[in-house]
């Protein structure tokens, strides 16, 4: 199974990506396609550059070689207006939620609505309330500051902000890390549910085997500075690579599989 270089027309296209910090090369010749309407899970060991890959795609880490296109446009070559237009079409949930600490949850969700849509007042409030409710937070949570929230609530609030502009594409960086298993399972359901009802495409960096089983349509495995396998979970699991075998056939991998089967 090769990384799907033969396919084109994905919502995200990464070709020959090379990223590095100083002399340290994180990715070299990485190819990846994310198709419209799917949930793609990106897995890999610690330090294989999963988050760096996400940052390279969303324009926070300029690649030293290769090409990244999102919605058919190269973000790094796009000018101010075009960039803004791309940024409006995606939402990003960072690992810790990355909520603005001086704003309440509702104000956090209203921030992009206010900035990008120029919508203020009652309408902005109603849209924020809708998003907050959709991610499963209680109405009272809207008035809370991020410091008053638990980790799971913070991630939900971050997701509400990521969804504020009705994005077509959502990036999630370890959405279930640090959540208890119940909270993590609910988050998986939430993502699948939102994807189906809103037609989202989801790019998800994760460690969580249960999430891969529960939510992801396809899985991309990062190792050796590139994507070594990409496809539906059942295919990827059978790939002949030591890391993949250890990852999926290890005790946690088997447990997640058993949980899926039952």
């Amino acid at each position: 199974m090769t990384p799907d270089a033969e396919q084109t027309g994905g919502i995200i296209e990464v070709r020959g990506l090379k990223t590095q910090f100083g002399d340290f090369v994180v990715h070299d010749g990485l190819d990846l396609t994310v198709r419209e309407g799917e949930i793609l899970g990106v897995v890999g060991g610690s330090g294989t550059g999963k988050s760096v890959l996400m940052r390279a795609i969303i324009g926070l880490k300029r690649p030293s070689a290769g090409e990244v296109t999102v919605f058919g446009q190269n973000f790094y070559e796009a000018g101010g207006e075009a960039r803004l237009a791309i940024e409006r079409r995606w939402g990003v949930l960072f690992q810790g939620g990355a909520l603005f600490s001086s704003l309440t949850v509702a104000q956090n969700v209203m921030a992009p609505i206010r900035e990008h849509l120029n919508v203020e007042g009652d309408l902005a409030r109603d849209i924020a309330a809708l998003k907050i409710s959709m991610v499963g937070l209680a109405a009272e949570a809207g008035a809370k500051l991020p410091s008053e929230l638990s980790g799971g609530m913070r991630k939900r609030a971050g997701l509400a902000r990521a969804l504020a502009l009705d994005p077509e594409l959502v990036f999630l960086d370890e959405p279930t890390a640090g959540l208890d298993p119940i909270g993590a399972a609910r988050f998986d359901d939430l993502i699948v549910n939102l994807k189906e009802s809103l037609g989202l495409t989801v790019f998800m960096v994760t460690h969580d085997l249960d999430t891969l089983h529960a939510a992801c349509d396809r899985v991309a495995v990062l190792a050796e500075k590139r994507v070594i396998a990409c496809g539906p979970l059942d295919e990827v699991r059978r790939a002949d690579h030591p890391w993949i075998q250890e990852y999926f056939a290890g005790p946690r991998g088997r447990a997640a599989l058993a949980a899926k089967a039952s």
Binding site: A106, S133, A139, S197
Partner: peptide
Amino acid sequence: SLLEQVEHHLAPCFVAPS
């Protein structure tokens, strides 16, 4: 489907502590 999706999420929420 969108209409159904939002139907249960119409309750207003608190924006800032009173």
